[in-house]
């Protein structure tokens, strides 16, 4: 684990459909959500995540596609998850939440 790079990509050079992505300082929070979004992609054949050891700061995502480059599908997955966040933020702001303190407000039913 000497490699300090935050993102590592493992796989075979002659097969770009299959990759393992190793995320540094990530855990189940991003892992499961990302896995789910990747599974919803029509080009995904297999997607799974794991945290190989609880005391090491790494999270692995395995991605196999039906033909598209796995790196591109991963980018689409991250993009989709980000867009979902944007949508939820818009929904929440429509309910009166902002990033400034204080936003507690009075009791409403």
């Amino acid at each position: 684990m000497a490699d300090e790079k935050s993102l590592r990509i493992l796989g075979q050079p002659d097969n770009e459909r299959e990759r393992t992505f190793i995320f540094r300082d990530e855990d189940h929070t991003l892992g499961n959500a990302l896995r789910h979004v990747l599974m919803k992609n029509k080009d995904t054949d297999f997607s799974g995540y794991s945290v190989p050891h609880p005391s090491e700061p790494f999270m692995h995502v395995r991605l196999q596609t039906t033909g598209a480059p796995a790196v591109r599908i991963m980018d689409e997955g991250l993009s989709n998850l980000g867009q979902i966040c944007d949508h939820l933020t818009a929904q929440l702001e429509a309910q009166g939440a902002t990033a400034s303190w204080p936003t507690g407000g009075e009791t409403t039913s």
Partner: peptide
């Protein structure tokens, strides 16, 4: 504020996606 925490949490998930 409670809603601010929710707001921040979504922003943090978004930031993770952008970072990666």
């Amino acid at each position: 504020a409670p809603l601010r925490i929710v707001h921040d949490a979504i922003a943090i998930l978004k930031a993770k996606c952008d970072k990666w």
